[in-house]
């Protein structure tokens, strides 16, 4: 049994390889983008609208509301990034009910990639809102002595973000695979259901933590809780 879908390689040329992680990611991207394109092709601005449009509006507004509740003043700016994190992770988890599917989030490469995106996005938003000096000054607060600890916290939280998602998704997949060999009938199904729940929770946690990091970076450094406060 392969621990990561990275190891399931369909095609390789040199260091360029086409593994299951990338393929299923493309599949998820196609579903998300294609579905969104189909639904939003005929959007109604009136009071009468389609069911799918209602679903999309509910999802988008819920994400925007969740971002606003965390403390971001202009949530619409971050809906694209954080909402995509949530939808990608959530759909990757929901798709596990399809036989033969392997979630890309079960790959540490994918979770690391997402965590690196958050690792880059948070300072980028912070610098854009507060300027480079204003953002870097936050690392010296409350005192200069906290600078190394803040840098370590910034790195460690990114690592924790990646490992947490990877561990949950990989473990759920591994538990189901192991149980299939031990008790092949009912128990794996129940565990799959638990895996769906765990995947949704992880998607929520991942996106909320990313929102918190971005909110901490974009807010005034004097009032924010600190780089590693939400790990």
């Amino acid at each position: 049994m392969q621990l990561s879908p990275d190891n399931q390689i369909f095609w390789q040329y040199g260091f360029v390889k086409l593994n299951a992680t990338i393929v299923f990611t493309w599949l998820l991207m196609a579903i998300l983008a294609g579905g969104a394109r189909l639904i939003t092709a005929r959007l109604s601005t009136g009071l009468r609208r389609s069911r799918w449009q209602n679903v999309l509006e509910i999802i988008v507004l819920a994400m925007e509301k969740q971002i606003a509740e965390i403390g971001i003043v202009e949530p619409r700016r971050f809906v694209g990034f954080i909402g995509t994190l949530f939808l990608f992770v959530a759909l990757a988890s929901l798709a596990t009910i399809v036989p033969g599917y392997r979630p890309p989030t079960g790959s540490l490469s994918t979770t690391a990639a997402l965590a690196l995106c958050v690792f880059v996005a948070a300072p980028a938003y912070g610098i854009r809102d507060n300027g480079l000096f204003g953002y870097l000054r936050g690392y010296t607060e409350p005192t200069v002595l906290m600078l190394p600890f803040n840098i370590i916290g910034e790195i460690s939280r990114t690592l924790a973000l990646a490992v947490r998602l990877f561990g949950n998704m990989m473990s759920g997949e591994m538990i189901v695979a192991i149980l299939l060999t031990v008790t092949p009938y009912l128990f794996p199904i129940v565990m799959t259901l638990f895996g769906l729940l765990t995947g949704m929770v992880q998607a929520y946690i991942f996106s909320v933590l990313a929102t918190v990091y971005i909110a901490a970076a974009t807010s005034d450094r004097g009032s924010r809780p600190g780089p590693g406060a939400h790990q």
Partner: peptide
């Protein structure tokens, strides 16, 4: 566990 090409590809895919 980490394939840096895959990481890079996933970053691009995510963007």
């Amino acid at each position: 566990l980490i394939d840096w090409f895959t990481v890079t590809a996933q970053i691009v895919n995510f963007l």
